[in-house]
Design a protein around this nucleic acid. Structure first.
Lengths: 332, 332
DNA sequence: GTGAAAGCGCTAACAC
DNA sequence: GTGTTAGCGCTTTCAC
């Protein structure tokens, strides 16, 4: 690999001059700038960011902590983050943690050693300790699609309370009164909020709260399926189920089918996230959409603003979810 | 951030000694090693890999060039690669290129500037020029799930010819004789091979080749759907369709449904890749499975072997696909 | 406008 | 066993 010395020698200037044309700093005559650029192009020179990182304290890379890149929702989120990051000159290091604390810590250490300029966190709940650590390191941190109450950290998320409300009130509006909800883990704020929104909608519709209709399940299809089977085989089965994410909701659809129930005629189902999966199943899933594109864009802007100090204060940006009605919901 | 000097001072030794305990090189007495380790732990010191990279010429990061991380097949592949890379101490930088040559070049330059230790390529076809460039840079490169014939590069892939053959002969075995195939792009080797396997199976079954039954489509659900609709509304519609990936196959299922045809009673459908999607739709999709876990593991072993020179020669590892029969195929 | 030189945090050769 | 020191490829004062 050619170094800045090669370019300097070849161009007959000093390395300082080359550095200045690379970074567009200092004052350089048009003539030498052109000339140096020509040489760089001819040699196909790529300045080493590892060397520049040593003095500039900038690696132009961001860590992305997510539960699992193979999970469609997070993959879509990652893609939108990647695009915006790339746009602004940053690369993305993916870190799938399975919400496992040990893995999370290992990854955070890797990112520290590699001097990532910032970390975007999309993983689960109870890592407040880790968050505080990160902030102690002065490592810019931003949280996406998750809420960290009581922590001063840049955040972009959807109004989960509203989302849960939209889902449930769509159902009550269709005349359903016996509505169950399957959450992934009430320790996760977003999950809790969605359930709270659900309760609010029921309350507004004058439906008394029934705790038997609030179930918790591991957040994958199988979990949703098993949980839904229980709910649907009870003595007083719900006529509608709200799955707190698309995976769970799809599990519900499969459970219904296996029990010989038709969707939506016998059971209505609503999901959350509006991933590709929602459009792929049959009937297509009614789901609450998160504006993934915008979320990715905003979070990158927040964290890069934080990184180069161009942003005065931390903020929490709450975007509004939208209900996308498809084929899994109908009137009772 | 604490530096090696801080540790040295605090421990009352030289930085060379600290470096030696970090890297487990040289000879250090048990006593001082212990002591230095204690200090490092107490200070929560993380050695800077950007500094060490400057001398060691190793960043311990790998670039992953894929079409789109939001595509389930590639997301699953990325996850398996990430896990193995992490295991061996490497991080993964994701680069979604949409198979766009400009984006690919941009990303490759980024990876060069960042001194990635190697690049794993899972993107499309006609980038032979880029490949040769990379090899000229002496940047370790490995190709996964793609074939680069005539190029000496480490490769892990599935036998696509066999895969296509398995899919089609499953269909002929069920008595189908009018079998269509939808490929994503015949310029992509893997696609071409799958179609070749399909033809081989038909030939073995004594079915004459009909070029009207070989269609090409953009590789997403909509593409598969539109193409399938054409095929299925022709004067002599196929009784079975082989979609060269799950997305395409799901498009076929949707097309059939919209045309009022039942799957598998009226049309049988086979996919390829066996992604989560296959298990999510109804009926679940019969699909040819790629051993994604193993592929990820092997490719990382190949490229890291290449990186530290512990591997004598390049190799191409061909794994065997497996047909997973589910609900979208039945006898005529 | 341009260049000399110090230094970023580490590794590795070599001296002791 | 441990320490000194010369780089790695770049940025950034500060002279000129």
């Amino acid at each position: 690999m050619a170094t800045i010395y090669d370019i300097a020698r070849e161009a007959g200037v000093s390395i300082a001059t080359v550095s200045k044309v690379i970074n567009q700093t200092g004052r350089i005559s048009d003539k030498t700038r052109k000339h140096v650029q020509d040489v760089m192009k001819r040699i196909d020179y790529q300045p080493s960011v590892v060397a520049s990182a040593l003095t500039k304290k900038r690696t132009y890379s961001l860590g992305l902590l997510i539960p699992d890149i193979a999970n469609p929702f997070f993959a879509e989120l990652a893609r939108s983050i990647e695009d915006q990051a790339h746009e602004l000159g940053y690369s993305l290091v993916i870190c799938s943690t399975d919400n496992d604390l040990t893995r999370e810590e290992r990854y955070v250490n890797v990112l520290r050693q590699k001097s990532a300029d910032g970390i975007i966190i999309a993983t689960g709940a109870r890592n407040d300790a880790m968050m505080k650590q990160l902030m102690k390191y002065k490592l810019p941190v931003a949280v996406i699609a998750r809420e960290m109450p009581l922590l001063a950290v840049d955040t972009v998320l959807v109004d989960d309370y509203l989302g849960g409300y939209l889902a449930a009130s769509h159902l009550t509006g269709l005349g359903h009164r016996n509505i169950a909800v399957i959450a992934e883990d009430l320790a996760v704020m977003s999950s809790k909020e969605r359930v709270r929104g659900y309760r609010k909608a029921l309350e507004e519709a004058g439906i008394p709260y029934d705790e038997n209709l609030v179930a918790v399940s591991p957040f994958h299809v199988e979990g949703g399926k098993a949980t839904a089977k229980e709910l649907l085989s009870s003595s007083n089965p719900p006529s509608a189920i709200f799955g707190c994410n698309d995976l769970l909701a799809i599990g519900v659809v499969q459970a219904a089918r296996e029990l010989g129930l038709r969707v939506p005629e016998d059971v209505s189902v609503v999901g959350f996230d509006n991933t590709v999966l929602a459009t792929i199943i049959d009937p297509p899933l009614t789901s609450v959409a998160q504006p993934v594109q915008q979320m990715g864009k905003e979070i990158v802007q927040l964290i890069t603003g934080e990184i180069d100090g161009s942003k005065p204060s931390k903020q929490r940006l709450v975007l509004l979810p939208e209900l996308v009605v498809r084929g899994t919901t109908s009137a009772v």
